[in-house]
Structure formats: structure tokens, C-alpha cells
Amino acid sequence: MRTVLSADEIRQLLPHRWPFLLLDRVIELDPGKAATGIKNVSVNEPYFQGHFPHEYIMPGVLIVEALAQLTAIVYCQGVLSEIAATSTSSQLETPVGPLVGKFDAKEPDVSDIQISSLVGYLVAIKAMKFKRPAVPGDQLVLKSRILSTFGILSQVSVTAHIRSEIAAEGVLIVSQRPANEGA
């Protein structure tokens, strides 16, 4: 299985930490557009202690959270590739995109950017179906694809597969962090 982003690299991009970092690996990535990621479900997950004491089932809302975290990766990588694009076309005095202005556009050093501070919020769960429970030992293959963006909001099509079966699918709306709240 290819690794586009390892767990260590994901940690650089997302502000989430244990026990709430629900993305183990990114295996496909089209920055700003779509991604595929992996979440391995282990019996040691802290939520299994209560959900449920007699039957381990990963809460559906946490599958949604994992999908939202993957979506944040899509967005962050989109911003990073935008910064890379503006740095190569250095004749542009004012770089495009509202977020780029915060950084030194002439010497964009990706390592200096607190990219995780750009991650916004989950705004709406428009439609979500849970077709199969996720239990210890399952590997969730998460997919996220940006459908449409208006202002700072984006509508996103998401699915979570376990092998060939759909475990969850639906449409989320996520926001970028409003510009005045940035780091």
C-alpha cells in the first residue's frame, strides 16, 4: 500500500492528538480536491470502554470525525500547493488567496507555516448513512472529495469502506478557519 502521508506527517498537518487523531495514513491525495485515507480500528481504542461494555462498535460520529479530519488534510494540502504555486510565479506582487497574505510570500518556507492552525470546523452533517458497524480489526478506507466551495464553506462527499462494503457515506459541510481567527 502506498503511503502519501505517514502518521508522523499527518501530525504536522492536523491539530488533533490522542485520543482524537483518527487518521493513520493518507494513501491518495489530490490537494484541494480529494483524498483517500486509512483508519485502523483497534480493540484498544479508548471509546470501546463505554461503546459498548458488551459489544465493541466504533461510534458512527467518530467515523464522521475521521472523514472530517481527512477533509482537513485535503484542504491544508490545497493551501500548501497554492503557496508553492505562488512562489514559483514570483512576478505576482500580491499572491492570490486570502490565506497566503499571512505568510512571507517571497520566501515561502513550508516548514515555517503552522499549517495545522488553518484547520477549520465541521459545520454540517448534511446526510449520513451508517450501513455497517466498524468493529475492532476493521480497516476503514476513508474517501473525501470536495464538491463545491462558496466563501469559506465547502460541501464534501465522503465515504468509509470496510473491504468492499460501505460502512458510512454522506455529505459534510466544513469551514476554513475564518481569516481573523488565524494563528
Binding site: A124, L147, S148, F150, L153, Q155, I173
Partner: peptide, 24 residues
């Protein structure tokens, strides 16, 4: 604003017309 995004998608689907950020 969430409804606005919904309308942007609806108008695009129905009329094949795009609405951009500045067109509030």
C-alpha cells in the same frame, strides 16, 4: 451562509450557472 452554499450547489445543478464568492 450554510444555506447559501446549498443554493450555490442547487443553482449550479439546475441552471448550470456558477456563483462565486463575491456574488453574495
Amino acid at each position: 451562509s450554510i444555506d447559501a452554499l446549498e443554493l450555490v450547489v442547487g443553482v449550479e445543478d439546475m441552471f448550470n450557472v456558477s456563483i462565486y464568492d463575491g456574488d453574495m
